Structures are given as structure tokens and as C-alpha cells.
Amino acid sequence: MQIRATAVAFALVLAAGSAAAQAPRSYILTTATTGGTYYPVGVALATLAKVKLQTTEKIDISAISSAGSTENVKLMRENQAQMGIILGLVARNAWDGKDEFAQVGPQKHLRGITSLWSNVDHHVQRKSLTKTGTLEDLKLLYGRKYSMGARNSGLESLNKFIFPNLGVDYTKFDLVYQGYGPSADSFNNGQIDGTNASAGIPVASVTQIFAKAGKDAVLLEVTDEELKKLDGGTGLFFHHTIKAGTYPGLEKDVKTSAYTNFLAVNDALPENDVYLVTKTIYENLPFLNNIHASTKEMSLERAMSGVPLPLHPGATKYYREKGLTIPARLIAN
């Protein structure tokens, strides 16, 4: 009788453990405002997880809009979100506790899953207020209204980083803080004279501007010297060419700056869940490619490119399984 009772108890423990392992897990993926690239790609990632993982693995991911990268770090720190799309510059500052994160300190809860796509800077300016067609023309906007991006967004942080490096005193602009869509509306309505829509190509808000403003809008070029200056020695920025025809009326190629953004996750998430998410992403890239063109940049070969902080062990497990070498700087302690 004692043996049988023990066996039953053991079976119950196993059953309980199995049930716990299969308990539903719901995660929030925070993105940015709806006019850029973060939101539609975040929705695509969440939809992919629902299709591939919700029934079989009981993993559900929901995407939400936000102000952008800086707020995403905060939401993840407070566990209001467990995953987030973050641009590399903001993530580096967060990990080190610098600049916009100086008061809250290093954000060591962050881990990387994968590089996603390049954010391409679209410095849009009214043509009547340009002279050289390069970033030098930003100084012609002193005293005029300029949209820095939404408050607490990665775009705001980006602009506040690169403008001083370029010798552009953004405090001399008449600053407004709007997301991508509202900035496009304001430009087309004559309420602002410039903005930087930094996102994966094509950017809906830039299409909106060129479709309505036409030749009254121009994309500023970034020269080799300007790229070196705006990078500030970080090595995070590189040149990217926006091809003619990408936007209505864009008749020539425009060389601008770009940088990587990536999918981050809280370090507390189970290794196997992050492994399954990483695996699902790379086994279903065509699904993502069909939803947003920017994801066509994604590949296993560049999965770790531009990731500025350690990978989550679940992502590391998948990459090693695929035969990739993990750089020492990306291995979590």
C-alpha cells in the first residue's frame, strides 16, 4: 500500500510539473508610434508567435504602441512589457546608464534576441529653406518649428545625440514633439519646416509628406564628413542609400545615415520561451517579409550585427544550434 501511495504521489508531482510547463504565457512586445516601422513589424512578430506558438507551446505575444525606444526600456524595467524593439544607441545608453538613463542607472535587465533592420534617417526639410542639400542646412531652420519626435522616443534621443556632434544647436529650433504621422501632417499643413523620420524603408510618414508636399520637400544628404561627426566615435552609424523612386517624386538617390535596431527581452524570461521565439522568427522570415519590406534585411548571418548588449541565453542556444559563433561580448554572465 505504501509503495502504491508513493507511486501515486510521484505521478501527481510529474503531472503537476507537466501542467506547469504547459501553463499559458502571455508577453507584451512594446514598439513605437504607428507611423514608423517599429509598430507594424512588432505586430508582425506578435502575429507570427500567435500563429506558430500559441496553440502548440501556449506562448502568446501582443504588440502595443508606445513613444518609442526610451519608453520601451522603462516599460520593460517595470515589467509592463517583456519584449521591446529598441534602437542600438538607446540600448547602449541604457545598458551603461548614460545620458537619458543617468538618473535611473544601468539597465541590466535587458538582453538581446536579434538584430532586426536598419533605421534609415530621413531628414525632411522644406526645399525653400535648403541651400547645400546636406545636413549643414539644418542650421537654416534656427527659429523655425522642427519636430524632434515624440517625447521619450528613440528618435528624440537620436536627434539629441547627433545634432550636437554635427555642431547643430537644436535649442535654437522652435521645437515641437510629435510622432511620425503627426509630424507628416504638420509638415504638409505648413506648421513645421523639418523633421527626421528615422525608420525602416519605406517610411509611411515620409511617403505621406512627398505625396502631398511634392517638390516642396527635400531629403537632406549626409556627407562622409557629416557621418563621421554624427557617429561621435560610437561606430553605430553607417551610410545607406535611399533609392530614387522610393517615395513619390524622389528622382535621385539620396545618401543618408543609418543604424541598427533590435529585438530586446527581459532577462527573467524562460530560456526555452526565448529559444522558441528566436527559432520561430528565423524559420518564418518569408512571413515577416510579406508584411513589411524592412524585414528583408534580416538573416541569420547578421542576427547579432549591431546588438549592443548580451544576448538572452535562449537566443544564444538557437544560434549555437545553427552553428554560429557567439562573440564574447554578447554572452551573458
Rank of each mutant, 00 (worst) to 15 (best):
residue 93 N to E: 11
residue 132 T to A: 03
residue 197 A to Y: 04
residue 121 D to N: 09
residue 3 I to S: 08
residue 304 M to R: 03
residue 189 N to S: 13
residue 227 L to F: 07
residue 174 D to E: 09
residue 116 L to Q: 15
residue 16 A to P: 02
residue 288 L to S: 09
residue 29 L to D: 14
residue 39 Y to M: 10
residue 234 T to D: 01
residue 110 L to P: 07
residue 328 A to Q: 13
residue 150 A to G: 06
residue 46 A to K: 10
residue 275 Y to C: 11
residue 278 T to K: 14
residue 85 I to Q: 13
residue 246 T to M: 07
residue 268 A to R: 08
residue 108 K to C: 11
residue 117 W to P: 04
residue 154 G to H: 02
residue 332 A to C: 05
residue 21 A to G: 04
residue 88 G to L: 00
residue 94 A to Y: 07
residue 308 P to R: 03
residue 273 D to M: 13
residue 275 Y to D: 12
residue 299 S to W: 09
residue 52 K to E: 14
residue 325 T to P: 00
residue 82 Q to D: 11
residue 104 V to H: 05
residue 248 P to I: 07
residue 218 V to D: 06
residue 10 F to L: 11
residue 305 S to E: 15
residue 184 A to Y: 05
residue 101 F to L: 07
residue 272 N to Q: 15
residue 239 H to C: 04
residue 282 Y to A: 13
residue 24 P to H: 00
residue 107 Q to K: 06
residue 267 D to Y: 12
residue 262 F to H: 13
residue 330 L to N: 13
residue 17 G to P: 00
residue 296 K to P: 01
residue 91 A to L: 15
residue 30 T to K: 11
residue 44 A to G: 08
residue 82 Q to R: 06
residue 79 N to I: 02
residue 223 T to H: 07
residue 245 G to H: 02
residue 270 P to N: 06
residue 77 R to M: 11
residue 213 A to F: 04
residue 291 I to M: 11
residue 274 V to R: 13
residue 27 Y to H: 08
residue 5 A to V: 07
residue 24 P to I: 07
residue 179 G to A: 10
residue 49 A to P: 03
residue 6 T to R: 03
residue 175 L to V: 02
residue 291 I to H: 11
residue 117 W to R: 03
residue 28 I to C: 15
residue 188 N to Y: 02
residue 25 R to I: 08
residue 129 L to V: 01
residue 166 L to I: 09
residue 81 A to N: 14
residue 279 K to I: 14
residue 16 A to M: 09
residue 6 T to N: 02
residue 84 G to S: 11
residue 271 E to Q: 14
residue 275 Y to S: 08
residue 302 R to L: 11
residue 121 D to K: 06
residue 101 F to K: 02
residue 223 T to Y: 08
residue 295 T to C: 14
residue 201 I to R: 08
residue 172 K to M: 10
residue 101 F to W: 01
residue 77 R to Q: 13
residue 151 R to L: 10
residue 142 Y to F: 04
residue 240 H to Q: 15
residue 139 K to W: 03
residue 95 W to I: 12
residue 312 H to S: 04
residue 134 T to D: 09
residue 310 P to Q: 09
residue 308 P to F: 03
